[in-house]
Simulated assay, not measured.
Amino acid sequence: MTFQQRRRRPAEEAPSQAHGPDANPMDVAREMALRILTLRDHSRQELGDKLLAKGVPEDVCGEMLDRFEDVGLLNDQNFAEQWTRSRRNSRKLSRMAVRRELQTKGVDRDVIDQTLEGIGHDDEVQLATELAQKKWRQVKSLPREVAYRRLAGALARKGYSSAVVGQVVRDVMDEGSDDSLGDEFE
């Protein structure tokens, strides 16, 4: 018996195989959706796209998604809030980068706006500063202009505006150069 055979249990088989050709499409779709949602929350569009890609008929998919919303298993507002918290905490993404990600996941513009309305300029500067300080430790030994480019590039890739990038990089580099001078005289 191979490793894959030992790992795979009958309950882990694809629903269409487990239920056979006479299975109720709604039951199969529900099983697939529940399995997908056990990994992480999804937006309605994201879950629908995954189910359609697995061959769930469009009418069954729509009906099942409506039912999941009715019972609270699928909620784009909750998904957007959790996604925003997660991406800002773990990846230090800017408000605009999170907005783009939520849009690609099919979250409604009004839901996105409501989710992101509490994130202000000061929050962006604070998060960008945390990221820049971490990156500064890696680049502080480089020539100043190279270090500036690397810090600015790291922040820009996370979606921060040029105004935030310029302010944060200058502040972090000025603080970092002050710290290094202080270390030499201690």
Results as ranks from 00 to 15, higher is better:
residue 98 V to R: 09
residue 144 R to E: 11
residue 76 D to Y: 08
residue 77 Q to W: 08
residue 75 N to S: 08
residue 120 G to Y: 06
residue 134 K to L: 10
residue 116 L to E: 01
residue 108 D to E: 08
residue 82 Q to K: 15
residue 109 R to N: 10
residue 118 G to P: 02
residue 85 R to F: 11
residue 84 T to P: 06
residue 114 Q to Y: 04
residue 73 L to R: 11
residue 129 T to N: 05
residue 124 E to Q: 04
residue 101 E to P: 06
residue 83 W to Y: 15
residue 151 L to R: 01
residue 113 D to F: 07
residue 142 L to C: 04
residue 148 Y to H: 15
residue 83 W to P: 12
residue 124 E to S: 05
residue 159 G to W: 01
residue 160 Y to N: 05
residue 75 N to W: 02
residue 153 G to T: 06
residue 86 S to I: 05
residue 76 D to R: 08
residue 89 N to V: 04
residue 109 R to E: 12
residue 74 L to K: 14
residue 143 P to V: 03
residue 101 E to K: 11
residue 85 R to E: 12
residue 135 K to Q: 13
residue 149 R to E: 11
residue 76 D to I: 07
residue 145 E to G: 10
residue 83 W to H: 14
residue 92 K to I: 04
residue 113 D to S: 12
residue 154 A to S: 08
residue 126 Q to I: 13
residue 142 L to R: 12
residue 72 G to C: 00
residue 106 G to T: 07
residue 89 N to F: 09
residue 79 F to Y: 13
residue 107 V to M: 05
residue 157 R to A: 02
residue 108 D to W: 02
residue 114 Q to C: 08
residue 131 L to Q: 06
residue 106 G to E: 07
residue 160 Y to C: 04
residue 160 Y to G: 01
residue 159 G to C: 00
residue 152 A to K: 01
residue 79 F to A: 02
residue 107 V to A: 07
residue 126 Q to W: 14
residue 95 R to P: 12
residue 156 A to G: 02
residue 117 E to M: 14
residue 82 Q to H: 15
residue 88 R to W: 07
residue 87 R to N: 11
